[in-house]
């Protein structure tokens, strides 16, 4: 299982996790983005943006 990029703790991912999914780190609560599967890779989720404009 991958490590949380913020606190280093192990992040437990369910089987149906897909790329682009957002999850919260159980240990530090940071919002993480699943950037890859097989193997799972994680990154801190980008800052909140309401919309794109048009």
């Amino acid at each position: 299982m991958p490590e949380c990029p913020v606190c280093g703790g192990t992040v437990d991912l369910k089987g149906d996790t897909v790329e682009g999914e957002l999850i919260a780190c159980a240990e530090c609560g940071s919002e993480l983005e699943v950037t890859g599967v097989n193997p799972f890779t994680l990154a801190e989720a980008p800052k909140e943006e309401e919309d794109w404009g048009e």
């Binding site: 897909v18 682009g20 999914e21 957002l22 983005e33 989720a45 980008p46 800052k47 909140e48 943006e49 309401e50 919309d51 794109w52 404009g53 048009e54």
Partner: peptide, 22 residues
């Protein structure tokens, strides 16, 4: 380029990126 917005997909919350920006 916009960093991505959060959208609901069934039970999941996903990051959605496209070709748009400020």
């Amino acid at each position: 380029r916009n960093k991505g917005i959060r959208v609901r997909k069934g039970e999941k919350v996903m990051i959605l990126r496209d070709y748009s920006g400020k």
